[in-house]
């Protein structure tokens, strides 16, 4: 178990700043999610933690020790790759055992530890199979078992769920979280999937263009995005933005309601022209415009709406966020 600190970490590939000055602190036992679109530098940041890349500037600290020049094998980390990177010529048992074999433990100890890890992940019956003979979900478990068998200080995961099909992915996510809480290993998890980030992370660091735009617990990231990038990236559909009196007004589609349904609290009112209504089973999405700007409302099915008509909509003022017109940074008002 360990804490990780990143101090002013930069990584340049030629002229490109893949990671452009990141300061982060990951607490002992914490599950930190690095969330961002592709090209935001999140995978590079993880590879820097793993030691597969060397930072151009800055300090990386694991457990109080600066590890910039420590090779991956001596950092006490483990990593699960997006592809799982199982050794195709080794059985599942030998895959999980590999880190211990390299360490030079004796056979009975290796067998004990491998069986323990495999049992924990429910893959005990697969030990004699080859990686080509098991399913995607099973491969993922093997990769996690191999990562954990050495009891790493820090567990790094690079989009480990993205190769699974949608149904398995949901169960795998729930299990992963449960599992991480049980063993309490410090975890850094990279994803571009906000649902994964919200569901798994103790905290989320939202990245874009090599920088951390916001770091916080999932609720804060969702309800109080620090700038228009985070607000637009998180949420499906994302936050609505309307320009009013020289500032950008932002509000989530689900707090944007017909005025007659709104409570008596302090309201911010809009004229909403509905152009299209989409029924999505348990809720519906209304696409339309406020003035010239396109917005979306997420409504309950029983709310009557007709395409082509204009309605009075409102948002509780405490649900409205304001952002600077040029920089996109949040301003309090």
């Amino acid at each position: 178990m360990a804490f990780v600190q990143l101090r002013g970490i930069k990584k340049q590939f030629g002229a490109v700043n893949a990671v452009d000055g990141v300061d982060l602190e990951i607490k002992d036992g914490e599950f930190l999610v690095l969330l961002g679109p592709s090209g935001s530098g999140k995978t590079t940041l993880m590879r820097l933690c793993a030691g597969l890349e060397k930072p151009t500037a800055g300090e990386l600290v694991i457990d109080g020790e600066v590890v910039n020049d420590v090779p991956p094998r001596e950092r006490g980390i483990a990593m699960v790759f997006q592809s799982y990177a199982l050794y195709p010529h080794k059985t599942v048992f030998k895959n999980i055992a590999f880190p211990l074999t390299v360490e030079g433990l004796d056979k009975s100890e290796i067998r004990y530890k491998v069986e323990l890890a495999a049992g924990l992940l429910g893959i005990g019956r697969l030990l004699e199979r080859m990686p080509s003979q098991i399913s995607g979900g099973e491969k993922q478990r093997v990769a996690i078992a191999r990562a954990l068998v050495r009891k790493p200080k820090v567990l790094l995961m690079d989009e480990p769920l993205s190769n699974l099909d949608a149904k398995v992915r949901h169960t795998a996510r729930v299990e992963l979280k449960k599992f991480q809480q049980e063993i309490g290993v410090t975890t850094i998890y990279v994803t571009h999937d906000q649902a994964e980030a919200m569901g798994l992370g103790d905290r989320i660091a939202v990245m874009s263009e090599g920088r951390v735009r916001q770091i916080g617990i999932p609720e804060d990231i969702y309800h109080d995005p620090a700038d228009t990038f985070v607000a637009g990236f998180i949420g499906n559909p994302p936050m609505n933005f309307v320009e009013q009196n020289g500032v950008i007004v932002g509000f989530r589609p689900e707090v944007f309601l017909p005025a007659e349904l709104a409570s008596t609290e302090d309201q911010t009112k809009f004229r909403f022209k509905v152009t299209r209504v989409e029924n999505l089973g348990s809720f519906k999405l209304a696409y339309g415009t406020i003035g010239e700007t396109g917005v979306i409302a997420n409504l309950q099915l029983r709310v009557p709406l007709e395409e082509g008509r204009e309605y009075d909509f409102s948002v509780r003022s405490k649900d409205v966020r304001y952002y600077h017109r040029e920089t996109g940074v949040r301003i309090t008002k």
Partner: peptide, 8 residues
């Protein structure tokens, strides 16, 4: 890279 991380 996995092998590098696994201690090689």
């Amino acid at each position: 890279e996995q092998a590098l991380i696994d201690g090689c």
